[in-house]
Design a protein around this nucleic acid. Structure first.
Lengths: 247, 247
DNA sequence: CGTATCGATATGTCTATACATAAAATCGTC
DNA sequence: GACGATTTTATGTATAGACATATCGATACG
């Protein structure tokens, strides 16, 4: 799958401003295990005399650490190193057209099917919508250097996104159009693996039974479903890559 | 796969402190499209008279928005709404034992194979290590309610993690042991799909040719490789889920 | 002994001010 | 008009002080 990869706060060699030094210093102590989970970090007034600066400055450093979930701050009690129960990752998933462009390959797009209809029970279920309204159903194929890259099967709620009625999905991929025209507030991705059935194998030009990576994405604006999409990638040639930052 | 799911800053109904109100207010304008990508956000001094507060306060709100990658701040020029080229997700991946426990199922663990050896060329390549040292190679199986859940194939660099020599991997899963004993600074995950070969099918009690989700994880401490692991999950019964926050 | 109250304390927010810094805008010179 | 130096300006960092607020712990009370 590709996927741009990135970490929350890279260790960019930033200018050594005071609060950043303090943050990095504490971060190092946590990451190396010198201050294990549960350890109480020195009080702000201790840190301020330690580093010879004001409380606002150490507080800013601690705030960023708290925001990154490395520490937990409790009034009166102090700040504590958090238990690393999870690895938290920042995954950045690009629009497919941008993604292929970033790989230096030529992007190709084919609209396979596009129809408008009143939502049936299956459509409502897939979108998670309560009411029945108009929807657009789209099937299309993305390719890189004329090799099939992914197939897309999408449903757009026309009541929530009326502008989609006038979009030309024959020339512009629906994902790209949506990204540029429709603001959203939340999305959920579900990643799984399946084997290609006859139809998918034909569309992706792979063997029936070949492994495929599946991404199901649902997008909402203020709890209202906008679109549901399933992307199918040949599993042997694509990977999702994520860099993580640990604690 | 499971995967605990979570977003960077949940919409917790926080107390309406001033800077939070400002942050949420601007966030809303961006998320609803009222201020599209590229739009210049009012200058700090405009915001401070708008909200009737000091510059430090509006600056704190803008700093958080910049940290969340929603806006970009440029000296002299001002602050601008960022173009949403990516969806950024926070994926939280739990230790498998904790993950199964969180599902309310009983955890089972079997060590299939464990050997110590001097790293060969393939081991060095897999770890990304330059020098040849001792390694531990482990194969094990995790199960939930006595049903195979995942199989694990792991390599640990004994020079980087000497304490691993004394760990008892017959009773404690290596992932759990490492999480609690070895601090790390960076990890990279690569997610892909394969079909089960004969060996994997036997270990997971699934059909040969069934789809599997694969997670390859590499972990480092200060650029030094610690461990490389491949986790294989039956693809039809497990999913990676990630909630995203959009821009 | 259990419980309510209260004070001490560390963090959370906010102000007003100061100077540093980067970059856009302007000016001056050739 | 082109190009380099200077000015202007918005952000970035830092300070000292103030008050708010949550909470731990001790004290007093029933």
């Amino acid at each position: 799958m590709s996927l741009a990869t990135d970490r929350g706060k890279p260790q960019s060699a930033d200018k050594p401003t005071l609060y950043k030094q303090i943050r990095i210093d504490i971060e190092r102590r946590i990451l190396t295990g010198e201050w294990p989970p549960g350890h109480r970090i020195p009080y702000e007034h201790e840190l301020m005399s330690l580093y010879g600066c004001s409380r606002m400055t150490v507080s800013k450093a601690l705030s960023e650490l708290a925001q990154a979930d490395l520490i937990e701050r409790r009034r009166k009690a102090g700040s504590f190193v958090r238990r690393p129960t999870f690895l938290s990752a920042v995954l950045k998933i690009a629009d497919i057209r941008a993604e292929i462009g970033a790989l230096g390959r030529s992007y190709g797009y084919e609209l396979l099917q596009c129809s408008r209809r009143t939502a049936n029970a299956a459509d409502r279920d897939r979108l998670g919508a309560r009411k029945t309204g108009k929807v657009i159903a789209i099937a299309c194929r993305h390719s890189a250097d004329d090799v099939p890259f992914a197939i897309e099967d999408r449903l757009i709620d026309l009541d929530a996104v009326p502008e989609a009625a006038t979009a030309d999905f024959a020339t512009e991929p629906p994902g790209t159009w949506l990204l540029h025209h429709v603001p959203w507030t939340e999305a959920e991705h579900s990643i799984s693996a399946i084997v290609a059935d006859e139809q998918a194998a034909a569309a992706l030009d792979i063997a029936i039974g070949a492994p495929c990576l599946v991404i199901d994405r649902h997008t909402w604006r203020s709890a209202r479903p906008l679109t549901a999409v399933r992307l199918l990638y040949p599993g042997d040639s694509h990977k999702l890559v994520a860099r993580f930052k640990g604690g």
